[in-house]
Computed example of a mutant assay.
Amino acid sequence: MGVRICPECNAKNPAGAPLCVKCGCVITDQKVVGDEPSTAEPVSAGPLAMEMVGVGQVVVTDIQMPFWSMVWFMLKWAIAAIPATLILWFVIGVIATAVRH
């Protein structure tokens, strides 16, 4: 199977790769070094298996993360949401007070 050369970092990528596996740059050219371009499914770019849906859209189909690492991530996300919620309540209260008067 041929390889595609990334225009940004000159890394070698599989012929069917929509993104560079090294820097994540979108590979727009159709020039393939080696064999003819393959019709394979999109390849995994690091730990995420991604599929190009349309211009500017990416669908993440797999995240390989250890369980306790994900629990810790979700806990930090929930704690970070608390100040945002308080700020929203404050802004909504100010707007509601201004509208009533």
Rank of each mutant, 00 (worst) to 15 (best):
M65C: 08
T97F: 14
M52S: 10
D29S: 14
P18V: 00
S69E: 12
E51W: 02
K12L: 09
V99S: 07
G2T: 05
Q30F: 12
V71R: 08
V71T: 00
A45Y: 11
M74S: 12
G46R: 02
W89E: 15
P37C: 00
M65G: 06
G34L: 02
A45V: 15
S69W: 02
E36V: 06
A17W: 07
V53Q: 05
A84K: 04
W77Y: 10
V21M: 14
R100G: 14
C23W: 09
L88E: 09
I5A: 03
P37Y: 00
M50R: 02
S44F: 04
P37G: 01
V53E: 13
G34P: 10
W77S: 15
L86T: 11
P47F: 01
P7A: 14
G34K: 00
D62A: 09
Q64A: 10
K76Q: 07
M52T: 04
L19K: 08
A81I: 01
S69K: 08
I5C: 03
A17M: 11
D29Q: 13
V59G: 08
A96D: 10
K12N: 15
I27H: 05
G34W: 01
R100M: 08
I95K: 01
A98T: 07
I92G: 07
D29G: 09
I95N: 07
R100K: 11
V55R: 14
C23S: 09
L75F: 06
H101T: 14
G46S: 13
V71M: 13
W68T: 13
I87P: 03
I79H: 00
A98W: 07
M70H: 12
T85P: 02
H101P: 04
R4W: 01
L19W: 13
G54E: 11
V43F: 02
V26Y: 15
L88P: 05
Q30K: 13
V32P: 07
I5E: 07
E36C: 05
M50S: 05
K76N: 07
M74L: 15
E41F: 15
F90Y: 14
A11Y: 03
V94T: 06
N13G: 05
C20R: 05
I79M: 06
A17D: 07
T97Q: 12
V32S: 08
R4N: 05
P66F: 01
P83K: 00
G16M: 08
T97M: 13
I82T: 00
M1E: 10
V21S: 11
C9Y: 12
F67T: 15
A11C: 13
P66Y: 00
M70Y: 11
K22T: 12
P47R: 01
V59P: 12
I63G: 09
N10C: 10
T85W: 01
K22I: 03
C25F: 11
A96I: 04
E8I: 05
A49S: 13
V91F: 01
I82C: 00
M70T: 09
F67R: 12
E36P: 03
F73K: 11
I79K: 02
V58E: 06
A80H: 00
R4L: 03
T39L: 08
A84Y: 04
N10V: 10
V55E: 14
C9R: 12
G16T: 08
P83W: 00
P66C: 02
